[in-house]
Computed example of a mutant assay.
Amino acid sequence: MAGTRLGSSDPKGCFNIGLPSGKSLFQLQAERILCVQSLASQSVNEGSARFTPIHWYIMTSPFTDELTRKFFESHKYFGLEADQVTFFQQGTIPCVSKDGRFIMETPYRVAKSPDGNGGVYSALKSSKLLEDMAMRGVKYLDCYGVDNALVRVADPTFLGYFIDKGVATAAKVVRKAYPQEKVGVFVRRGKGGPHSVVEYSELDPSLASEINQATEQFIFDAFPYAPSTALFEVLREEEFAPVKNNNGSNFDTPESARLLVLRLHARWVVAAGGFLTHTVPLYATGVEVSPLCSYTGENLEAICRGRTFHAPCEISF
């Protein structure tokens, strides 16, 4: 996924949304994986189970693959082991205009574009990664969009919910922010039918105006074929900060995502007994807590209690 709508030709995961640390989306996600691994390792050491590192599969496109690989190599995989990160390419499809005509890249070649996030299924199969997962003993897959600055990668709470429900698939959902928000919604087709996603462009106007609906963070075209599905509603301000449009747009910008991260982390610091000072209104700023310090606000008391932090800043080890 390239960040063209953000005014960048780099893969979107390489984008820096302007946090005090200057970290890219990829680095934030890598460090959340490191944090979950650390928490899991501590839990395992208290019991008798064996800890296995999380394996990270990153889907690229033919247009972003080389740049993504080089970005990870130049940053030494952000502290992860190189052999626990696997890159694979999604497929492409011909570009077609609204009137049904092929769009030509040259007079003799049809232009192509990535086949969408639904292409992950065929890409995993064609890349032989299903066999790779079986060899590694992978039992559960957590799929997410790279452009969510607040995504909880490998969220143990969500995984526990999924396992407890005993379903084949599950998805995190948030409620629509406003009636006209251009997002799909989870629906049941027919009484007791399977869950599926209806895109905003396909919704009946009377349904589109409702806000008491769950909005998917990821589009799962395979959901209707799953024998059972569970939806897990989360708070938007804690887990959903999409980065889709340039600063200056009305929504889903690097600036809006940055503020969501800083405000959430400011609440963590205050809850842990810390204090904040600021020279601009606090609603326009906040503090950044390194994922290496805390995954969801836990274990911050030793760092924050009784201390004062001047926003904006990063709190790290």
Rank of each mutant, 00 (worst) to 15 (best):
S209T: 13
F223T: 08
S228H: 05
E216K: 02
A222F: 06
V198S: 05
Y225A: 02
A222W: 04
L203D: 07
E216C: 08
L203T: 04
Q213L: 10
S196I: 05
S206W: 09
E216L: 10
H195P: 00
V197G: 03
E210T: 07
E202N: 02
S209C: 15
A230G: 08
F220I: 04
A222S: 11
Y200V: 04
L203G: 03
F220N: 00
N212I: 09
T215E: 11
Q213G: 11
S196H: 09
I211C: 11
S209E: 15
N212Q: 12
A208M: 07
L231R: 00
V198H: 03
Q213S: 14
Y225L: 06
N212G: 10
F218C: 03
F232L: 13
D204F: 06
P224N: 15
A208F: 07
A222E: 11
I219V: 11
A230M: 07
Q213P: 06
A226Y: 00
I211Y: 06
E216D: 08
F218W: 03
Q217Y: 09
E210G: 10
D204W: 05
A208K: 13
L207C: 13
N212F: 09
A208I: 14
I219E: 10
F220G: 03
P205F: 01
E202L: 01
S201D: 09
H195E: 02
E216W: 04
P205D: 01
S209L: 08
T215L: 05
A222Y: 12
L231Y: 01
E199H: 10
Q213A: 13
Y200G: 01
P205V: 02
Y225W: 04
